[in-house]
Amino acid sequence: MEQLDVLRKLCLALPEATERLSHGSPAWFVRGKKTFVMFADDHHGDGRLAFWCPAAAGVQEELVRTEAERFFKPPYVGPRGWLGVRLDVDVDWAEIDRIVREAYRLVAPKSLAALVE
């Protein structure tokens, strides 16, 4: 699956990022502990190919409000401000890279976050 392969490459390019299955789907962690991206392929039949990640305060609400065709509030982690990002639409991979990097910076220790542009 092309989208998963590209997402995997973006995530694993970050310092001390690791991948393992979490709840049956690929997920990426900082130092094997803190999740910064979770892949979701038709999660509980929602029909979406997407990923979920933490977002800065207010970002989820703004993107879901202004671009609902590309962004959504994911189950479980959405109430904590995580962002759902669709990969089954026309994808701007430069934008996805920025979103993944920001998610990483939000959960990584300051020493690692400082290494990410």
Rank of each mutant, 00 (worst) to 15 (best):
P75V: 09
A40F: 01
V89E: 10
D42P: 03
V6E: 13
A68P: 14
I99H: 06
E62T: 14
V100D: 03
V85L: 02
I99F: 12
F29C: 08
D5T: 13
W82G: 02
V6P: 00
R48M: 14
A114N: 12
C53M: 15
L112I: 10
V59Y: 01
T66F: 01
A94Y: 00
R105H: 10
G84E: 03
A55H: 06
A56C: 02
M38S: 13
A50H: 07
L10F: 04
A94D: 15
K110C: 02
L7F: 03
I96P: 01
V37S: 03
V107P: 02
L115G: 07
V91Q: 10
L10K: 04
T18S: 15
L14I: 05
I99G: 00
D42R: 12
D42G: 06
P79L: 05
D5Q: 14
Q60V: 04
V91W: 09
W93T: 04
L106V: 04
V89A: 09
L12A: 10
R98T: 12
L21F: 11
A68M: 06
W82I: 06
A57V: 10
V85W: 00
P74C: 09
A50F: 06
L14Y: 05
G58C: 05
P79A: 07
D88P: 10
V64D: 05
R98P: 00
V89N: 08
K73Q: 14
K34Q: 13
P15C: 12
F29Y: 14
R8C: 08
E2N: 13
F39A: 14
R31Q: 15
F39I: 02
F51R: 00
D92G: 10
Q3D: 13
G24V: 11
D41S: 13
W52P: 00
R80F: 14
S111M: 05
F36K: 01
A114S: 14
P26T: 10
K33T: 13
P74T: 08
L14G: 05
